[in-house]
Deep mutational scan, measured.
Amino acid sequence: KKRTSIEVSVKGALESHFLKCPKPSAQEITNLADSLQLEKEVVRVWFCNRRQKEKR
């Protein structure tokens, strides 16, 4: 499966949402994916990866 490159503006939106809520619910992920026009899975994985980055 190909990697999804996320635009800078979208990254900013994801980042600001992450600061408010690092573990969004499935519903929040769906809403966020719809508003940013990304697949739910891409948003879910982004949050997962971002939480791991926070641990490092």
Rank of each mutant, 00 (worst) to 15 (best):
S16K: 14
N49L: 05
E28W: 03
S16C: 10
E28R: 04
E28Q: 08
L19W: 05
K20V: 08
L36V: 03
E39P: 09
I29F: 02
S25F: 02
E41W: 05
K55W: 08
I6D: 08
S35G: 07
S35W: 06
C21F: 04
Q37G: 13
S25A: 05
V43N: 04
L19I: 08
V10Q: 14
A33N: 00
L14H: 00
A26C: 09
S9T: 11
E39D: 15
E28F: 03
L38F: 01
K11P: 12
F47L: 04
R44H: 03
E7I: 08
E39R: 05
E39Q: 05
A26N: 12
V10A: 13
R50P: 01
V10E: 15
L19D: 07
W46S: 04
P22R: 04
L38R: 01
C48P: 03
T30G: 10
V10R: 09
V42M: 15
R3I: 12
T30I: 12
E28I: 06
K53D: 15
I29T: 01
S16G: 11
K20Q: 14
R44W: 04
V45W: 08
L19A: 12
L36Y: 05
A33S: 11
L19P: 00
G12R: 13
R50Q: 06
S5C: 15
K23D: 15
R50C: 02
E41V: 01
K1G: 11
L32W: 00
L32F: 03
H17S: 12
V45K: 12
L19H: 07
S5G: 13
C21Q: 15
V10L: 12
P24H: 02
Q52W: 07
R56T: 11
N49C: 07
R56D: 06
R51D: 05
V8R: 13
V42I: 09
P22C: 10
N31P: 02
Q27W: 07
L36R: 00
L36S: 01
S9I: 05
R51G: 08
G12L: 15
N49K: 06
T30L: 09
V45D: 15
A13E: 10
P22E: 03
K1W: 08
I6K: 11
A33D: 01
S9F: 05
V43M: 01
R3P: 07
K1L: 02
L14E: 00
K1H: 04
A13Y: 08
I29Y: 01
V43K: 03
S35F: 07
S9E: 14
K11N: 06
K53I: 09
P22G: 07
T4F: 09
H17T: 06
V10H: 14
E41H: 07
S25D: 12
P22Q: 15
Q37P: 03
R50W: 01
R3W: 08
A26M: 11
S16I: 05
L38V: 11
Q37E: 12
V43G: 00
P24S: 01
A26L: 13
K53M: 08
Q52D: 14
H17D: 04
R3L: 14
I6Y: 07
R50M: 04
E39L: 02
S25V: 04
V10W: 09
L14R: 03
E41K: 04
T30S: 13
R3Y: 06
S25Q: 03
R44A: 04
N31V: 11
E41C: 03
L19E: 10
F47R: 00
N49A: 08
Q37V: 05
E41D: 14
K2P: 05
K40F: 11
L36T: 02
S25E: 05
A26R: 10
K23S: 14
A26V: 09
E15H: 03
Q27K: 09
E41Q: 04
L32A: 01
A26F: 05
P24Q: 02
K23R: 11
Q37H: 12
E15K: 03
I29D: 01
K55E: 13
E54S: 05
V10D: 15
C21V: 06
L38G: 00
V42C: 07
S5N: 15
T4E: 10
S5D: 11
E7P: 15
E41A: 05
S9M: 05
P24I: 02
N31Y: 13
K11Y: 14
I29P: 01
T30W: 05
S16W: 03
T30Q: 15
K20D: 07
T4N: 10
Q27Y: 07
H17R: 04
K20P: 01
L19T: 08
C48G: 09
V43T: 03
S5W: 06
R56G: 10
C48N: 15
